[in-house]
């Protein structure tokens, strides 16, 4: 593929080493390298804190932890990510930013909601700071998202599933990502695109264990497919939480040609 965000297998070794050094030095400074890599690749990191705290009545720190992990990961990859929770995570903001975002992370409630009954459409709930929590549907996002969405991570229940109502877009499809796994590095693939989500009910403690490892592998230079596989094999999770992925296995996750990928070609 000609997309510059694919792992640059043929790029000069010097360029790869330079990119690695920049990522390592800036990363170790604790400031993130997004300041060095200009704000060319916008992204959004949303976490529905209120739903898992005030609304269901239980205190919650997992939503904050997941949001922080995603923020660090997106920054490492080279995205300039806005971080939104409570009143900052609204349907209006998601749809507004969706027109330019090249990566998105959402931790919230997700499902195939009736819109209206009996039609079911995949979606997730905004936070909004209260418990009314409007739904952002896949159909809403499909209408506004740009062509260049690279990375979509849905830390919710149900959004890696096939559509229950024929003809309705999945959340992956809403972002232009085939619900297909492209694993052959020598065959045509989905380009610089990767979707991560969960099938069925996902439990937050399991999600934290899995995503902690997933980001751990991503930010130590593993390709996204490898990061998924290694995280799946290493995370202490109950058997009921099942993550899944679609897109290009060999994609690094980086939006541009300056790859922080120290373990790929």
């Amino acid at each position: 593929m000609s997309d510059p965000a694919r792992p640059a297998r043929s790029s000069p070794p010097v360029a790869r080493v330079a990119a690695t050094i920049v990522a390592l030095v800036v990363g170790l400074s604790g400031t993130g390298h997004t300041a060095v890599l200009a704000a060319t690749y916008p992204a959004s990191d949303y976490s529905n804190v209120t739903a898992f705290d005030t609304c269901d009545g239980t205190p919650d720190t997992i939503s904050h932890s997941l949001e922080a992990l995603a923020q660090s990961g997106l920054g490492y990859l080279g995205y300039t990510s806005g971080e939104y929770a409570t009143t900052g995570f609204t349907r209006a903001r998601v749809l507004s930013r969706a027109s330019t975002d090249q990566a998105i992370y959402v931790h919230s409630h997700g499902d195939q909601y009736f819109d209206p009954y009996p039609k079911q459409v995949q979606g997730f709930r905004e936070d909004g700071g209260d418990c009314s929590q409007a739904i952002i549907y896949a159909t809403d996002l499909a209408a506004v998202r740009p062509a260049t969405v690279h990375l979509v991570l849905m830390s919710t229940c149900h959004l890696a599933e096939a559509a229950r109502t024929s003809g309705q877009p999945t959340m992956a499809a809403a972002y232009g990502i085939d619900r297909v796994k492209y694993t052959d590095p020598h065959a045509p693939d989905d380009g610089a695109r990767f979707f991560l989500g969960y099938e069925g009910l996902a439990w937050t403690a399991d999600m934290l264990h899995f995503e902690q490892r997933f980001w751990g592998y991503v930010t130590t230079g593993h390709l996204l497919g490898d990061a998924y596989t290694l995280a799946r094999a290493s995370a202490a999770m109950s058997g009921t939480t099942v993550p899944d992925w679609f897109g290009t296995y060999d994609y690094s996750g980086a939006p541009g040609s300056s790859l922080p990928c120290t373990r790929c070609v």
Partner: peptide, 15 residues
């Protein structure tokens, strides 16, 4: 060799 996953972990913290 040192790898890093959390940008908010400073060099001092890592050390």
């Amino acid at each position: 060799n040192l790898s890093r996953i959390d940008l908010r972990i400073t060099a001092a913290g890592m050390a």
